[in-house]
Every structure is written in C-alpha cells, then in structure tokens.
Nucleic acid binder design. Structure first.
Lengths: 118, 118
DNA sequence: TCCATATTTCAATAATCCTTGAATCATTGA
DNA sequence: TCAATGATTCAAGGATTATTGAAATATGGA
C-alpha cells in the first residue's frame, strides 16, 4: 500500500456508514454480503449505500462480484492488512511506543504468535 | 480510542499535508517541532498549517505546548497506538489475515518481541 | 417478451472541507 | 511602551463529499 492509496483508505474509513460496512464485511468473511443486505443492516437507502460501496471499492478495502441478481461485496483482507502496516511502518516509522500495543493485539489474533509469546 | 475518535482520526490522516505533519512529528520525537518549522518543511502557509494543526489536535493525534513565542507540536504516541489498535481490533475484529502482517512489523520494532520471535 | 428484483447512475441540493490573505493575539527584547 | 517575531483567527471563495429521489441498467423467471 502506497501513500496515495493510504490517503484514500483513511478517507474511506472516516465516514460512519462506511466504517460500519467494513466491520460487517470483515465479520461476514469470504461469503461477503449483497448490497441490499448491507443497506438493510446499515439502515440507509439503496442509492446511498451504492455511493459508499463505490467509495470503499475505490479505496481497495472491499471488492465486488456479481452473483445472479445480487452484487456481493467482500472485505479485502490484504488491503486492510496493508493499511495497518502503512500506519505502523510508514506513517509512524515503526516507533516502538506505537507498535507495542499493536503487537499485543496481533499476538492475540495469530495463533503462531500467541504460542511463541507465552 | 472509541469509534467517534477513530472516525475523526481517520479523517485527519486522509489529507496529504496532515499525514506529512504526523510523519514529521513522529520522527522528531518528544522535542516536537514549532508550528513555523512545520510550515517551512511542509511548504505551506502559516495560516494553512495552523488550520491543519488544529484539525490534528482535535483528533488527538498531536498535542501542543507553548514555549516562549513558539508553539511546539508533538506526536501523541498513545493516540497513534490507540488508532492502530482500533483498526486491528475493533474495525477488523482481530482477523488473523489482517493482523499477521502487523505482527511482523511490530516484531521488528519492539525489542522484546523480536527476541521472543527468533 | 414482460415483469419483478437487485442495484447503480444521475442530477440537484446540502453539507463539509480546504485555501487564501488580511487582521488579530501573545510573547519577547530594545 | 514599541517594534518584531511567531502563530492563530476570521471571512470569503472554491472544491470536494454526502444525501435524496427519480430514472436507468442488469438479471432471472413466468
């Protein structure tokens, strides 16, 4: 993830509806969610959700694929990981005080890490 | 860091000049930089830098303190770490695929981690 | 083909954000 | 006190982003 993409991604996450969408798609995993289902859960109009989904896709944080009549959106884990990495490494120069709390979280989430850190 | 603050912080980082400011302040450490010095390095006008510094301070990512005639800005490591944590934990539900790359970065930056992971 | 469903696009408006330059405020030293 | 320095505030304008509802597009089934 380069700076240009990171700027767009930060902008994408700076809007409540869009942050909500990303959270839902991360949880829903590889199956993703249809645009309509997202709109319903987020309680926004179809045209509005479409606007925000487009913005998120432009940022690379989510991807779409048509499935029959529905358009299924999924979280792009690689891009999200890339953004975390950008924030820690590029933006914060890998500063220990900033990265340490992140390391804790990472340890809790990645089984291998957890093992080694015990 | 709660969602409200995270939204503001993401917005703060979504602007090129402000991202540049944060990077400079992280590098400059606890000594920080005076507003004028920041403006000069970022090549923007005093009033414009003031606008962006205010926005960053509102986000909590930087702090200010007067020192004689100058106003010194410093990066808020705690807030930056909190944002990384929010992105990994709250926003991305601690998803391993997203957190793994972050763990690598963290390992490189925090001496204790590095030791344990070798 | 025709209709229903799922979604996007478009145009208009509202809201927010960014930039600029002039004016103002705070601090220090002569 | 006065002038100089360092920085902020303010108002105006331009640019971008968000919301809305109506119209258009794509797909699948009767």
């Amino acid at each position: 993830m380069d700076q240009r993409q990171a700027l767009i991604a930060f902008g994408a996450l700076s809007q409540e509806t869009r942050l909500h969408i990303v959270r839902m798609l991360v949880v829903s995993g590889p199956d993703g969610m249809a645009a309509g289902a997202i709109a319903e859960k987020a309680e926004v109009s179809p045209s509005n959700i479409s606007f925000h989904l487009k913005e998120l896709e432009r940022s690379g944080l989510i991807a779409q694929q048509r499935e029959s009549r529905s358009i299924i959106y999924t979280a792009n884990y690689e891009a999200l990981g890339g953004l975390v990495r950008f924030l820690m490494e590029d933006c914060c120069s890998g500063h220990p005080e900033i990265c340490a709390p992140a390391a804790e979280v990472a340890a809790c989430c990645t089984p291998k890490m957890k093992e080694k850190l015990q």
